[in-house]
Design a protein around this nucleic acid. Structure first.
Lengths: 344, 344
DNA sequence: CTGAAAGCGCTTACAG
DNA sequence: CTGAAAGCGCTTACAG
C-alpha cells in the first residue's frame, strides 16, 4: 500500500508486464479507440496499479486548469469581504475548483506582489473586489490570459471588463425617501470613500430624493467619510455640532453606522427618539446592534455568486449574457428610524 | 511582445541560434558550473527570450511546491472562522504561497469531496479548523504526504497530530471566578457542542471555579447548547423559567451570547442590572452590542498565525518546537456584568 | 569548457 | 487491432 517512494514506473515496464508493445500502452493511456477490449482492460489495470493513469490525469488537468480561482480583496477588515467570499465559495464548492483568497492590505505594492505570484502558480481566473479600474493594473492578468470579474469597482472601469455591483443609486434614493416619508426634513449623509463609484452613487441617489421632495441639498449635511466606524463617529460629532443638526443620518454602510451609534450614545442621545439612523449593506451585525439597524440591503453573497458564475463562463470560453450586472438593493425596516415628532 | 501562442521553442532551436550544441544549452538551463561565462550569457539570453527559462522554473517549483496552502472549515457561518483565516493570511502574505479556503458545510460528504480535490490539485499543506480527530479521516492527507495542523480539534486527536488551541479550561475558570468575585452565587453556563474539547474544557473550568469557591454545581444551571445565537436564546428562556433562575450567565461564545441578549430583552430584563452575561472569543461584534460584552478573549488571529508558522515548518521538513500549542485566554471587562446587589 | 554519442521515455505515422 | 521503426526533446557519461 505504501509504495509512494518506490521509483516511478514507465510505460516500458507496463508493456513488458502486459506482454504488449509500448505503442499499445500509449494508446490505452490516451484512450484511443483502436485497442482490443481485453488488451485495454489488462493494460488499464496495470497502468492504474502503477500510478501511470493518475499521473497522466494530473498532467492533463494541469494543462487545462490549475484548479484554483483567486479572489483579491483590498483588506479583510470588514464583514463586507467575508460575505462576498461566502457567495463565491458556495458556487465554487459545487465545482472541482478551490478558492484562493488574498488581500492587498490596501497596498499597491502587495497588489503587485500578488500579480507576480499569479504567474508562478497560475490561476484559472480571478475575482477582484473593489479593484482599481486603471486598465494597466490588470495587464499581468491579460498577459497570462487569466479571465477576471470585478466586484464593486473603484475608479473607472473599462467597458470590456466584466463586473458586478448593486443598485447603489437606487439604494441611496430609497433610504432617503424612507426618511422623508417619516417626516424628516433635515437629513444628513456620511459618505464612503469618494473614489468609489458605489459610494458616489449612493450620495447621488440621496440628492435626487431630496430634490424630488423639494428639499434643499445642504453641503453641511454631506460629510466625507470612509467605511470605517471611526469616520462615522467623527462625522456624527461634526453634524451634532452644527447650529442646526440633522434629525436623521444616512450612514455610508452598516459598519460606519456603528460609529454613528457610538457618537450618539456618547452624547446621551437616543436612537431612534433623538436621531434616526439608516445604514447600507445589511451585514449580520445590523440585526444585533441595539436598536437593530434599519438599512438598505445589498446582496453581497448573491454578488459573490453571480460574479463566480460569470467567471466560470469566461473560463469555459462561453459568452456572457451581460458584461455588467447590478443586483437590486432593498429597504430593510428595523428599529433605528422613527417618524419625526411634529412638535420637534 | 504578444507571442504567447507561437509554438513553444525547443532546446534544439536555441542551440542552433546560439551556435552551440544541445548539451551545452541543457547545462546552462540547469545552472551547471562548467560553462564559459560568455557562452552562458548568450545562451541564457536566448533561453529567456524564448521562454524556456520561465518554463523550466515553473516546472521546478511545481515539483517542490504547489504554492497553495489549504484551509478547511466546518462552515463559514461565524466570525470565528473569519478571524482565524485572517491570521493565516497575514503569515502567508509574506511567503510565495496563496491561501485556498474551503468549507465542508458541516457535511461529511463534502469533507470527502475536498479530500479528493486535494489529490487532483495538490496542496503544500493544510490547516484544518475544528476537524474531527478520527485518524482515518486524515488518511488521504497522509497518503499524499501533505502536512497539516489542526486548530481547535473536535473529538480525540492522535498524539502525533500537530494542533493549536487556546487555554479553554483556564478561560472557563476565569470567567466564572470573575462572576463570583462580583458576588454572584447562582451562575449558569450554556455550553457549546459537547463533542468539542474546547467547549468541554470551558465547562470543566466553570465547575472548578465553583467548587473552589465552595459553591454547588447545579445540573439545572448547565445547559447544553451549541455556538449558535438560537441555542443561546432557547437555553436562556429555559433558565429564566427555572424556579430559581441564575443571576449570571456564562455563554458558550460571543455569538451565542447574542441569543442570550435577545432572550433577556424579549422578557424585558436589562443587562447587566437584571442579569450579568459573559461571553467567550472576543470577536468584533462583542464590542458593538449594547451593552458591550464582557468576555474571555481567545486569540483567534494569533492561533491562525501560529498554526501557519507551524505548518510552514512542517512543509520545510523542519522540526516543531511543540506538537501542541495552547495560546492564552484573558478576561476583557466591558459592561455586561455587574456586582450583585445585596438586596437581591 | 565543449561536443559526439548513447540512451530514455514517449509519440506518431505506417504496414500488415 | 498491433508492433517495428523512425523520430522528438531531452539528459548523461565520456573524450578531448
Amino acid at each position: 500500500m505504501k509504495q509512494s517512494f518506490s521509483k516511478r514506473s514507465t510505460m516500458t515496464e507496463i508493456a513488458a508486464k502486459a506482454g504488449v508493445s509500448i505503442p499499445t500502452v500509449s494508446r490505452v493511456l490516451h484512450q484511443r479507440p483502436d485497442v482490443a477490449p481485453e488488451t485495454r482492460k489488462r493494460v488499464e489495470q496495470l497502468l492504474e496499479e502503477h500510478g501511470l493513469l493518475q499521473r497522466h490525469a494530473k498532467k492533463l488537468s494541469r494543462k487545462e486548469h490549475s484548479g484554483i480561482v483567486d479572489m483579491l480583496f483590498p483588506g479583510f477588515d470588514s464583514m463586507y469581504s467575508f460575505e462576498i467570499a461566502r457567495g463565491v465559495e458556495e458556487v465554487l464548492a459545487r465545482t472541482d475548483r478551490r478558492l484562493a483568497i488574498s488581500s492587498t492590505h490596501h497596498s499597491l505594492e502587495l497588489e503587485q506582489h500578488w500579480m507576480s505570484k499569479i504567474q508562478h502558480s497560475p490561476s484559472d481566473g480571478a475575482i477582484l473586489v473593489l479593484a482599481h479600474g486603471e486598465p494597466r493594473r490588470f495587464d499581468p492578468l491579460h498577459r497570462h490570459n487569466i479571465p477576471f470579474v470585478v466586484v464593486d469597482h473603484a475608479g473607472e472601469l473599462g467597458l470590456d471588463t466584466p463586473s458586478v455591483g448593486a443598485t447603489n443609486w437606487l439604494g441611496g434614493r430609497t433610504a432617503t425617501e424612507y426618511l422623508i416619508s417619516l417626516g424628516h426634513r433635515r437629513i444628513a449623509v456620511i459618505t464612503g470613500p469618494t473614489t468609489l463609484p458605489c459610494s458616489q452613487d449612493r450620495v447621488a441617489g440621496y440628492r435626487v430624493a431630496l430634490e424630488a421632495a423639494g428639499l434643499p441639498v445642504r453641503p453641511d449635511y454631506i460629510c466625507q467619510g470612509n467605511f470605517s466606524p471611526d469616520s462615522g463617529y467623527t462625522q456624527t460629532n461634526a453634524l451634532l455640532d452644527l447650529p442646526e443638526p440633522p434629525t436623521a443620518i444616512f450612514a455610508g454602510c452598516d459598519e460606519q453606522a456603528n460609529g454613528v451609534y457610538r457618537a450618539l450614545r456618547d452624547r446621551g442621545l437616543r436612537i431612534p427618539d433623538d436621531m434616526s439612523v439608516i445604514g447600507f449593506d445589511d451585514v449580520p451585525t445590523a440585526s444585533i446592534v441595539t436598536p437593530d439597524l434599519t438599512t438598505i440591503r445589498q446582496p453581497l453573497r448573491e454578488m459573490g455568486r453571480v460574479a463566480t458564475t460569470m467567471l466560470l463562463h469566461l473560463i469555459n470560453g462561453e459568452p456572457l449574457d451581460s458584461i455588467r450586472v447590478e443586483l437590486t438593493t432593498n429597504l430593510i425596516v428595523r428599529n433605528s428610524c422613527k417618524p419625526l415628532d411634529d412638535e420637534k
